[in-house]
Design a protein around this nucleic acid. Sequence first.
DNA 1: TGTCTTCTTGAAATTGAATGGCGTTAGAAT
DNA 2: ATTCTAACGCCATTCAATTTCAAGAAGACA
Lengths: 179, 179
Amino acid sequence: MFSYTADSLKSELNSKGWRLTPQRETILQVFQTLPRGNHLSAEELHDILGQRGEPISLSTVYRTVKLMARMGILRELELAEGHKHYELNSASPHHHHHLVCVQCNRTIEFENDSIWKQGLKQVDRAGFQMIDCQLTIYTICPEALRMGWPASVPSRWMCSRSIASMEPTATPEVSSSQV
Amino acid sequence: MFSYTADSLKSELNSKGWRLTPQRETILQVFQTLPRGNHLSAEELHDILGQRGEPISLSTVYRTVKLMARMGILRELELAEGHKHYELNSASPHHHHHLVCVQCNRTIEFENDSIWKQGLKQVDRAGFQMIDCQLTIYTICPEALRMGWPASVPSRWMCSRSIASMEPTATPEVSSSQV
DNA sequence: TGTCTTCTTGAAATTGAATGGCGTTAGAAT
DNA sequence: ATTCTAACGCCATTCAATTTCAAGAAGACA
């Protein structure tokens, strides 16, 4: 797996007419020291930077993650309820997909080559060019069940991402939550 | 495939302590007369209702589609860039996935049972309960290419949903766009 | 049918993620 | 060192979506 240094980041930026700035270096470093498999929203990233004593303005954070997603350094994920998250996009990407618990928002990654292949097949069939391919599976996880969420969804219920926001009763906080 | 009448909708609502209102009946009817495979945003639905001479306030539209998604009558889709769309969730759902052009936002549906099966396999492996499963493939479509969008993305580029918003040059309008 | 309870509506205000404008700061090429 | 302009930070703005609240209506029951 390829890892950026300040120099390689600089040359990649410069090759497109962009500049290396302390902010960009810092933000990339946060992602590079993030435990593998974690992802951050712009807002979360902004908080982390503040806690580290290197505050960066929120608009710069937004601009930077978008730029890095554009460059292919970060991967943009749309998981639960209109929150975008970003994660390192390794040079030889082990493409992964996500399981999201609609109750506690916990996410779990998994890899599955045949999904990627199926996606590629669909794109070829349509004569398009594939850029990214993400399977998101919405589930209820065992922990959420244990903590008192409804034991099952109505049989006809196929998509229930809205449960959480429609049940104003206490939302169980899951300590290992990533979202 | 099961289809709601005013009566069956009423009993399903009442069984949960909710009420049948003209607004809810009208909104369901719009979805039921919508060509198969189409989906609407709350905003679009609101416009359609206005054009039909049966204006319903935007907040009611939002509340109703969320309620119907919760009941399993509608399926909530999160397609391009923070726009939620809704479609009828047929009783024997033909589960479909989406191709999204990152340039013109056009979406194309496709069905693929093996993706659903792969998803199910993953969920079983984790001991979870599957609620929904959606593959979203980000592409550049031939029309967008023809209209002058960049012919290719950088080789390292894995996720580029941000292109459109970062290229402030004219956005090609595609007439058959659904989004 | 009339009365009562409370769910629902509509209008307006509010939230919250994300973006844009603009004056200033600071990369990096010459 | 000078010059050009990308990038920053602050702040206002946008836009989807939600909430608030008084008025209205659905449904239950007598």
